[in-house]
Design a protein around this nucleic acid. Structure first.
Lengths: 345, 345
DNA sequence: CTGAAAGCGCTAACAG
DNA sequence: CTGTTAGCGCTTTCAG
């Protein structure tokens, strides 16, 4: 069916290796013959079989991306960044959804390995057993962990500066004049969220006012945010500002607050984390800490490509990307908030 | 490095072809030798090289998915459905983002073809020139068009029943008692949106009340929805309900309405289309027409897999998936709306 | 049931 | 600069 290098060789009267050279390097081949070969290739509508090439070169020019769920808008952004970078590096991207299930994850890895993928990016390995992690590390493929802080183990990582983000939120709210500030976050084990919380709390403590901030933990979902907000509003009605550990939680907070007849930002200031596309659409537009999601994807690919290039010395690389505060309309000075508190009293 | 079939042959004292048979079919091979071979393979931690296998079988067990942008939550859902189905069919999914750019799209197709992909799903071919479409059709790979109505050409299609969805919205609003209903949509050329508009208008006309609905066209984005809503509210202040051609436009409508001091649903009922995950989070939760996005992805893969199986007779298949109305809290009887209109007068 | 051999399409020494 | 020759790792006739 499809023309092969052999057909071109026959048609143009040279050897297949000459064809290969002419089509690839271009160098080390007579200008005339090269032109001729290329012309014949074009005439035959030749397209190289990358599978065959991969078999001999050992590189597949494919990268694997394992995320928990591409429907999570965070990962969709990361995936887009990864895909663009992969394309720029002449690779394509194989998408896998693990649902954070350890077995599923290992199956994907296995499958990718059997396809001789050049590298794998994944969401997390924390769900993996020690053996599984060892197996992974021993597989020989470059691996980079997405959205995971640098740790002492053997994998490369790409991650945003969560701690700085938490601090940013704290200082912003402080600057607005808030003194009764709460933080709503996920379970302690969650590395990223813990870093955000830590940055937040430390920045608050570093400020003159010494009051310990309220930190509530729950599920880091919309419902979780709403639930924590209700609890917080019950127990600490004097709070004037909330920092939610991610945007989706913040949406939940807003929902619960509105249900109680509170207005944002007049009665309650709210800061999120992530800067999802939806945070600008929501009402009011959410002030939030921007994570460079797209850049995380492309950075991961860069690391992978580098690792794939200098095969052998697999020295892991850790990239920590900067965050920034995006000021929108969910915060203001606490004047109105204090009013609310006194009204209640 | 990695153990090959050859290593197993040597270790177990049989020929490589026997190893291949033992590991694959299992049949036509002595039980004992098979067990032995399998044991040796396990001991050597053997994993087949699918690249090599692909070279001889001609199938890569990879499917390509070309969407305009995975960050569009609609496509993220489709992608998830496709990935799950691909995995179930023992294939993996290569993700491509075309931004609806014709050249980029063809580059992706080319790249996928060179990797001998088993089939391609794509968002659209409408941007492609006639030649490009012909080239595509002539390439021999199974192709299914995602989210495109069945047309007279050679490609398979998977698509939701947009017209029925429009009708559903109309009848729902009618049933609530609305008589002054508007539809906000995109440009005429957009097939899906036109179908929705048509279904909507026809259902309205089929009802007793003969009044022609207002239909405004603009950009089918958040901003577009907001803009059209402002215009509509200016020109037709007596409208009590709006059907937006998609959820994101509906969010824009809500935004603009709230800016004008209107409440949803008390002052204005609103129906969207898509049922994005965010439509439940938004305030108020949006009543909308659900499109089976996940199912569209998996259906596309099913079609592809079938097509790939019976090579040769490439008879295109068209799948039209059902939609349903999801009732949430953005609609109510128009009583309050009429009040508003009279208040203004 | 098993072995021998050919070959998928391409690259990469190695000679010339 | 170009041709010859080996394979990459696997499947698949074809004999035995």
């Amino acid at each position: 069916m499809a023309a092969t290098i052999k057909d071109i060789a026959r048609e143009s009267g040279v050897n297949i290796s000459t064809v290969s050279r002419a089509l690839n390097n271009g160098y080390g081949v007579n200008y005339q013959t090269r032109e001729h070969v290329i012309a014949v290739a074009a005439r035959l509508n030749y397209h190289p079989n990358r599978i065959a090439r991969g078999l001999v070169t050992g590189r597949s020019h494919s990268l694997g991306l394992i995320v928990s769920d591409i429907r999570n808008p965070f990962f969709a952004e990361v995936a887009r960044g990864a895909e663009d970078a992969a394309r720029a590096g002449n690779c394509d991207l194989v998408l896998c959804n693990s649902d954070l299930d350890a077995d599923k994850q290992m199956q994907y890895v296995q499958s990718l390995l059997e396809k001789r993928i050049d590298g794998i990016m994944m969401n997390s390995v924390s769900a993996l057993s020690r053996e599984q992690q060892a197996q992974l590390a021993g597989s020989g493929v470059p691996i980079v962990l997405l959205n995971r802080p640098a740790s002492n183990h053997t994998f490369s990582t790409v991650c945003a500066d969560n701690e700085a983000g938490g601090a940013l939120a704290a200082r912003y709210l402080l600057g607005l004049g808030h003194r009764k500030i709460a933080h709503l976050t996920g379970p302690r084990q969650h590395g990223n969220l813990s870093d955000r919380a830590q940055g937040f709390v430390r920045a608050l403590q570093a400020a003159e006012h010494q009051e310990q901030p309220v930190v509530l933990r729950g599920k880091f979902t919309f419902e979780g945010g709403a639930e924590l907000a209700r609890k917080l509003l019950d127990e600490h009605p004097d709070v004037t500002a909330i920092f939610a550990a991610n945007d989706v939680m913040a949406f939940g907070v807003a929902h619960a607050a509105i249900d109680r007849g509170l207005r944002i930002p007049e009665d309650l200031s709210l800061v999120g984390f992530d800067n999802l596309q939806f945070s600008v659409i929501v009402h009011p537009p959410l002030t939030t800490i921007h994570q460079p999601k797209y850049e995380m994807g492309s950075a991961a690919v860069d690391v992978l490509l580098r690792l794939a290039r200098d095969k052998g010395k697999q020295i892991p690389e850790h990239r920590r990307l900067g965050v920034e505060l995006i000021e929108r309309q969910s915060c203001m000075e606490p004047r109105a908030g204090l009013l609310r508190a006194s009204q209640r009293a």
